[in-house]
Computed example of a mutant assay.
Amino acid sequence: MNIVASHRRQGPLAAIIRPRHASRYAPLTSWLLAFPLVATFATGFLYPLSKLVALSFANGAESYVRLLEDFLYVRVMTTTVATAAAVTVFCILLGYPVAFAMTRLRGKAALITAACVFIPLWTSVLIRSYAWIVLLQRNGLVNDFLQSAGLSDQPLKLLYTLGTVVMGMTHILLPFAILPIYATLRTLPPDFARAAANLGAGPFRTFFSITLPLSLPGLFAGAILCFVLALGFYITPALIGGPGSMLMATLIGQQTTVLLDWPFAAALSTVLLAVALLIVFLFRRALSLSKGFHSVH
């Protein structure tokens, strides 16, 4: 009774700050807790983004008209989206078995597998890109092996191709596909697989009927991470890619550092952002229609 009376004497301010339930915060307290995140998001993303869009219209719609009229820029955008899609597909195809194995392995095997996933993730992207140069250059390890084994009479051109860019980006982004899928697979109760086996389902039917549908949220998260990161990848395409494998990030960097055409670079960045948001929305819509977000873990 004394506690209730003391709360009543604190006035209307206490009613605003004090939560109505032990598991909930009052509106003012919730806004105060969320304010640092909201302020960081507004100053670090929304404000620069608005300035970028405004800069792209510094000369009116001239930059966007130029982008659409010149086939070179359309081809670079198409190549960027296709490359990002290919990298995402390879990351999912290679990452899903690894994530699935990580949930089944125990002891030293699990530790070694986790180390193979995390150690490259902790290594600089620049170092991993240069590692591909060491492997694939004309006097690199791969060409030396092919010539010593009699499989090639002269060094092959393995660097500065679009295929090399896809391979290098897949290697770098692979952990971003493995970890979300692993986190989802780890939460799946093993009773589901046992129940399916008791009902006569084999391993393949159990996987495609139970495990794969329930792991779609993690697969979606990994695919989105890989796709968005691949759209804006700069270091790896710049180091191991050639003129025929130029991507949007490289083109934007060229416009800002070499040609100093900031409005056109802003227009390219805005279009790239719009394409990324559109594809992410379509991907999410398609997955939600397939009941991927309504899986019961």
Rank of each mutant, 00 (worst) to 15 (best):
N2M: 02
N2T: 08
A5R: 03
A5C: 01
H7A: 11
A15C: 02
S23A: 15
P27R: 14
S30Y: 10
F35L: 09
P36V: 07
L37E: 01
A42V: 10
G44R: 02
G44M: 03
G44I: 03
F45C: 01
F45G: 01
V53C: 11
A54H: 09
S63W: 05
L67N: 15
L68N: 13
E69R: 10
L72G: 15
V76K: 03
V76W: 01
M77G: 09
T80M: 00
T83E: 04
A84K: 03
L94C: 07
G95E: 09
Y96M: 07
A99Q: 11
A99H: 11
M102V: 08
G107L: 06
L111D: 12
A114G: 03
A115H: 03
L126N: 11
R128C: 05
S129A: 08
Y130P: 02
I133G: 14
Q137E: 11
G140M: 02
F145A: 12
A149S: 14
S152Y: 12
S152R: 10
K157L: 10
Y160P: 00
T161R: 11
V165Q: 07
T170V: 08
L174Y: 08
F176P: 00
I181V: 15
P189T: 09
D191G: 12
F192W: 11
A193D: 07
A195I: 05
L199E: 12
A201T: 06
G202A: 08
F204A: 14
L212S: 12
L214F: 07
A223D: 06
A223L: 03
L225Q: 11
L225P: 09
F227D: 01
L231C: 03
G232I: 02
P237I: 01
A238P: 00
G241M: 00
G242T: 05
M246P: 00
L247P: 00
L247H: 00
M248K: 03
L251K: 00
I252W: 01
T256F: 03
T256C: 06
V258K: 11
L259V: 12
L259E: 15
D261Y: 05
A266W: 02
T270Y: 10
A276P: 00
V280K: 13
L282F: 13
L282N: 12
A286I: 03
L289I: 10
F293A: 15
